[in-house]
Nucleic acid binder design. Structure first.
Lengths: 238, 238
DNA sequence: TAGATTGTTAATCGATTAACAATC
DNA sequence: TAGATTGTTAATCGATTAACAATC
């Protein structure tokens, strides 16, 4: 495809800034947070054999403005072509690269309960190139049990097990203490995908706090505006 | 407590606007999305027997500015007191009310797999006053099986089962079709908490799309900036 | 009363949208 | 070439922060 031939994978504003020592160029977090959504929509387009799309059509599909589509991608590089639009496959590759999908990160899961089983039953890790290397538990009763293909190990063994080769820890526990950040950072782990109810922040390790209850409560608020319109009582009489 | 005595639960800018027919007052979604986080921090304060807090201290705790704390709460009403600060219990009650926690909504779960089991094993519904009334499946093979205390029913029976008494449907399925929104709306359900990989939007029903993969990819991007600093290779040599 | 801290207005900052010249 | 559509600048909009008078 002509487009790909012309595009250089290093035609990336951040990398360019780095090379030219204008350095400090970073993409704002509002832009970054939209990238996974682009990723999903572009994947769907590819699955439907749509090879080319304009900012206008993509915007309509996603319920945003064409300007935003163009601005968003332009914070990373010149991914389109005037008069043509965007090559979907190329754009998808760029977004995948931005999100580091298929970097083949290694991960461990900490916790041996139902969340762990649920995550292992999906392809959420596989399709992003993440390899789960082990399942660990703080609870000695779990040690030795099976979780899908994994024999649960004690967190006492985690540091030796990691040996600097694990990038991500999935925290699939109901509650954790703040020290878990230090502990995992000391194991050489760089990021925590946190399903516990405790919000984590650390200078030593990146944390993504899933906080499932938050979206549930937002939904409770949103439906309230329907249910209470008028009579001030909901379906349960409250 | 003096504060509570003086405060009127209807001293709420939205309700005031409604009464005075200035009507259209709505809180911006940026403010609304922060409410669950306030809810969690205020609950923690209460659990630690802290009964009073200033916007400055709460801001420090949460890593935001005192101005934001005051502005956020002021979009709903006058929840504090000059010279004193905020009464934690009262503020928590207001935030709970805003988020409709403990409204005793009824819900059903659709899907009888590991996500359903994982959710039923937590107290995520209980502590928010949500009552799970049934578990349903599109897959006839699941029907009759047990999911915790529930016997899985067919989605064919959903409409009769709901009979207008169910507010929330938890979609615990890998993938769904867009029509699911119409189907659930026709059952009289008002909101979908969506764990599938398909993003849902509808005029007929509120949707909260969890999109677990999104935060995982953001984490992959964030740790990349650590791992690739310098040599351009990650721990797996990619 | 004096000190503390809110509620609220004004100033700033950043993000989104609009417009259009560049160009495929 | 003419039409289409980007990349990018300028304008707008909204959200955050600062400042301070009100007041507990």
């Amino acid at each position: 495809m002509a487009l790909e031939g012309k595009k250089n994978i290093f035609d990336d504003k951040r990398l360019r800034a780095k090379r030219e020592n204008t350095s400090s160029y970073t993409v704002s977090s509002s832009v970054m947070r939209r990238m996974p959504r682009y990723f999903r929509f572009l994947r769907d387009l590819l699955n439907n054999d749509i090879l080319r799309i304009s900012s206008g059509d993509l915007a309509k599909l996603m319920g945003i403005t064409p300007s935003q589509v163009r601005q968003d991608f332009n914070s990373f590089g010149d991914f389109g072509q005037q008069g043509y639009g965007y090559n979907v496959k190329f754009l998808y590759t760029q977004v995948s690269r931005i999100l580091c999908v298929n970097k083949k990160y290694s991960a461990v899961i900490i916790g041996a309960g139902d969340i762990t089983k649920a995550l292992l039953a999906t392809n959420i890790f596989d399709i992003r190139g993440i390899r789960i290397k082990g399942v660990f538990s703080y609870d000695k009763c779990d040690v030795g049990a099976k979780c899908k293909d994994f024999t649960v190990l004690s967190t006492d063994e985690l540091q030796d097990f990691c040996n600097g080769n694990i990038s991500i820890a999935v925290l699939a526990l109901p509650e954790v203490n703040d020290d878990v950040c230090d502990f995992l950072a000391d194991c050489g782990i760089n990021g925590i995908w946190n399903f516990s109810t405790s919000e984590l922040h650390s200078d030593k390790i990146k944390c993504q706090n899933v906080m499932l209850g938050d979206t549930l409560m937002l939904l409770m608020n949103e439906i309230n505006e329907i249910e209470f319109s008028g009579n001030g009582e909901n379906k349960d009489g409250n």
